[in-house]
Design a protein around this nucleic acid. Structure first.
Lengths: 341, 341
DNA sequence: CTGAAAGCGCTAACAC
DNA sequence: GTGTTAGCGCTTTCAG
């Protein structure tokens, strides 16, 4: 960028000092012009901006953060990206922060959400400006440690009345209830659930059971599938359920993928869906609309949740008021042929 | 962690100096014990480690990186996570770095790979220890800028004989060739391709066309679909192709998702697959094995590619020799009912 | 609205 | 194998 022949030597990076010299001001004024533009006279600011372009200056985040104790890093604790719901959610988060000058740092957490204090501490050396969890933090010790940190936090994909700070999620209990209501109305009686059955899965199961009870039905069998979600697993689950509960007339799966696996397996075994067994999924992935028979499912807006999570965080970081700390996305039943009677 | 009552005041963080005092050594020795263990006497090291636990010391990355000019950050430039291939790949990368002490920073690049110098520069203030691209860097200017950086780089999901540094990919041309060979042998004559058709897509199309030519067949129609990959898009593509090429007898789609959409649309329209139109996909997503008819596809190991990319980078960072700079994953044809004759 | 001095916490370079 | 000194580049005081 500089026009002289010094370009040859990438000796040392351009510093505020260099910009300051070119602009004829002191280093601190350059710093202010860049981070608190309104605290510097417009004219000076213009001169400084010109000098920045001329010198090709870029801020050294390390020096900046070391001195200020703050950073422009958003720490994201994400679950398995193999699950399209989470992947899509993360995509939403990424897009929310695009072009904002914040940088996203990723760390993996298990699907179990049994996030340890250590995992969180491991990310703190970066003093992130904010933290986003692709889940609700369960461990009490971790919650306490986090709440002491006094930084913006977004939890996702679950529900709590007392989030650490902000929450973008939905109620698994409501989801379970919706499906229980649906199954109850249809008159199903020998009912099985397969999928995540602890933590947030437990809430879903509880809601499901509760709604079924109101129709005099109950959840006859739970076939737990923690952390797995392939089509093959769904096929296996279908067989396993019919093995234990041969007269099963309705199955509710914790993910659409498992449900599709079950439907495919039913086809292979010539078991008519929904005539003999009704099948429902969870997630609202787009292919559920296109399989035959169409798959009844609970729809969740993963991408939008991610986007919203990112925007809430951003608003908070920019000092804007966040109108709702808890943003529960509605979960809706999409009724299709696979559970028709 | 400290046992006295000073715990109440989180005045300032524990520093090397504090650890040094407790261990009865100088700060620099603490630093060395932590980052170059072999340069410190075993006994001293033990004493220091004890002091670290006692004081609850955690390294300040900002100070460390500011001083050393190095960081433990791996910059990942990722494409759209909405695409399960990329998401899975990223998952592989994440797992490769789990527990290694390196931190992953994410930035989004468009599917087009027309990564600008600016995007790259935007990440450099963090002086990453390495950079991973979920794609091959196309823009020459960017390639040059990167090569001057003198840091480990992994490019992915494509092929070049002259990678910037390391490459984990596969040959799109080979993939296209495999499918062209397959279509040619089956005797298809009115052939359409739909999907990504520029850059890496162009290589695939070229290979496809080349192999078809050897069987006296040719690629009659290209229906480009840049950056889209939903089932709905596949349904639309199917209709669009038949509109332009009513006697089309075989379609090759750039992603399995598009291919599935096409198959579903064919079912709706009562067009027999493969009797009237053969359909093939690309990617080897697991559901291709389970749909009816089974979908012929080209298999790609996304997760493994990510894992390998991460491990190559890690080996390089740990100063281990990297035996192969270019790691081409084999791409294989999975022949199923959807293209049977 | 602008500047001078100081120091964030660490490690490179050079002793010993 | 260990210590001393200095400084990475920025921004927080505190003055003016």
């Amino acid at each position: 960028m500089a026009t002289d022949e010094n370009d040859r030597r990438p000796k040392r990076a351009v510093r505020v000092e260099d910009v300051a010299r070119v602009a004829g001001v002191s280093p601190i004024t350059v710093s202010r012009a860049l981070s608190h533009p309104d605290k510097v006279k417009e004219e000076t600011r213009q001169r400084i901006l010109a000098a920045v372009t001329e010198t090709g200056y870029v801020l050294n985040h390390f020096a900046s953060s070391l001195r200020s104790g703050r950073s422009r890093i958003i720490q994201v604790f994400a679950s398995n990206l193999t699950n399209p719901h989470f992947a899509t959610s993360i995509q939403g988060i990424i897009e929310a922060f695009e072009g904002t000058g914040f940088n996203l740092m990723f760390a993996q957490i298990g699907y179990s959400e049994m996030l340890e204090v250590d995992v969180v501490n491991g990310a703190l050396p970066f003093r992130p400006a904010g933290v986003i969890f692709t889940g609700v933090v369960r461990a009490e010790a971790t919650r306490e440690a986090l709440s002491k940190l006094d930084m913006p936090i977004v939890e996702m994909w679950g529900h709590r009345d007392d989030p650490l700070d902000m929450l973008v999620g939905f109620s698994n209990a409501d989801g379970g209830r919706l499906m229980g209501e649906h199954f109850g109305q249809r008159g199903f009686r020998r009912i099985a659930y397969s999928g995540h059955a602890t933590e947030r899965g437990a809430e879903r199961v509880a809601g499901f059971r509760e709604a079924l009870a109101q129709h005099g039905a109950d959840l006859t069998l739970i076939h737990p599938m923690e952390g797995t979600r392939s089509i093959i697993d769904g096929m296996g689950a279908f067989d396993a359920i019919l093995e234990k509960l041969p007269d099963c007339d309705a199955m509710f799966f914790g993910t659409d993928i498992l449900a599709i696996g079950a439907m495919l397996r039913a086809q292979e075994r010539n078991i008519p869906i929904p005539a003999q067994v009704a099948i429902a999924g969870f997630g609202g992935l787009d292919f559920t609309a296109h399989v035959k028979p169409g798959l009844t499912t609970l729809n969740i807006e993963g991408y939008e949740m991610g986007l919203t999570a990112g925007r809430m965080m951003l608003a908070r970081l920019n000092g804007q008021p966040v109108d709702r700390l808890i943003f529960d996305y509605p979960i809706t039943l999409i009724e299709r042929q696979s559970t028709a009677r």
